[in-house]
Computed example of a mutant assay.
Amino acid sequence: MHKLNFHLDLLEKDNISTYYTELFNVETNKLVHTSSLTDSSVLKNNFVYIDDVPNYLNAKINTQSETIKLKKINTYQGSLINLGKYNNFSDYLLNEISTKERSEIRRRQKRLDHCIKPTYKMFYGAISEADYNMVFNDYKQMLVRRLEQKQSYWEELDYWEARHKSTFQLIHQKKACVFVIYHNKKPIAIYINSIFGTAMFNEVVAYDIDFSRFNIGILIFLKTIEWAINNKFELIDMSKGDFSYKERFRNGTYTFQNHIIYNNKELLMWVKANLLILKISLIYKLLPWLKKMKINTLYTNYKRIKKRHIFKDYVLEPNRDFHIEKIAKMDPLDDLKLINIENPAYGFLKKPSIDFAFLNVEHFDDIVVYNKESNENTYFFKGKNAIQKIVFK
């Protein structure tokens, strides 16, 4: 059996013509791939299994051999945004997002822009090796740190090395793009996408959990949508996954399919193909029951244990209970020590200081942090407009 992933092995490697003569995008009503014949010699002599084909791409084969058959099996549900319905980003927000949520999005975006004065960059068509390596290293660190926080695992980590090797060239070929939000030249949110024609495929997002108060994962997603609309993309494929944000921002769904291509006249191949078809169909019919029995959770925990070496360098600061007081003035300076929260020793203060900036509309770089020398568990955050005392228990 020759197993392939539709996205990684066909789209990214320009290998569609070997297996399909036509791909028609029913969402955009456009023919996105056509060729006269598929490679009959490959298909005739191989039992081919292609997974994760979106059914909005209506796939056809046309070979010189009438014995080659294509069987399509429905698997997961995917989410998408058909951008052709909107004239601009404001039009998308107005039609798809509630008034209340639009207001909240604007509030958090304004707060982010005020508190940290971020810079935004889309890498598409060009990126330096230095920028690329920094982005990918930080993306992995942020992703692992987030998974450590959730005590979870995401199979994206299994493909990090492969993605790191391939994406640099794909960016230069305009087959991928990476959107980055920076604070003081350091990435705090990264969104990696792949490109096929006028369709953008969301691959992976990672963000610094210290900035979670700003809902930065949603903000970078919306920035990516805005960029796609401004650059005349017609569709955003949000892929699979039961995430609430997908339900909130999508305007359509589709079904992933697994395709099995085989020679109908070769008895052994016919038997193998039909057994696989039966097996896959049964698995996906049982999937709702397996989820109900939390088998997927058990599998995630198993993967996390198996891959625990990945997390060994990303141990989070232990949760420490503390209480906060908003005060009018500081304690005497002769009992206070100025500290640098960029020092790893004070890493546990990074998120509270960012939260202080958010809640008091302070610019992060204006915040000065002190430690009370007579009580090492007491700290002060001082901005231009507010002072806060934080005491760890």
Rank of each mutant, 00 (worst) to 15 (best):
H2G: 00
L4E: 14
S17P: 05
Y19T: 04
F24A: 07
V26Q: 11
N29G: 00
K30T: 11
K30I: 09
L31V: 10
S35Q: 11
P54M: 06
N58M: 08
S65H: 07
I68E: 03
K85C: 01
E96M: 09
R102L: 06
E104K: 13
L112N: 07
E129W: 05
N137K: 05
N137A: 05
E156Q: 08
H164C: 07
K165V: 04
K175C: 14
C177Y: 06
I190E: 04
S194G: 04
V205T: 15
D208H: 10
D208W: 04
D210K: 09
F211C: 00
F211D: 03
S212C: 06
E226G: 02
N230Y: 10
N231K: 05
K240C: 11
D242I: 01
S244P: 07
T253M: 09
E266T: 08
E266A: 08
L267H: 11
A273Y: 07
L278P: 02
I280D: 03
L287Y: 12
T300W: 11
I305W: 12
K306C: 02
K307G: 01
N319D: 15
K326P: 01
K326Y: 15
P332I: 08
D335T: 13
L336I: 02
L338K: 12
I341D: 03
N343C: 05
P352Y: 04
F356Q: 02
F356N: 03
F358W: 01
V368T: 11
N371S: 08
Y379D: 01
G383K: 02
N385M: 05
K389Y: 08
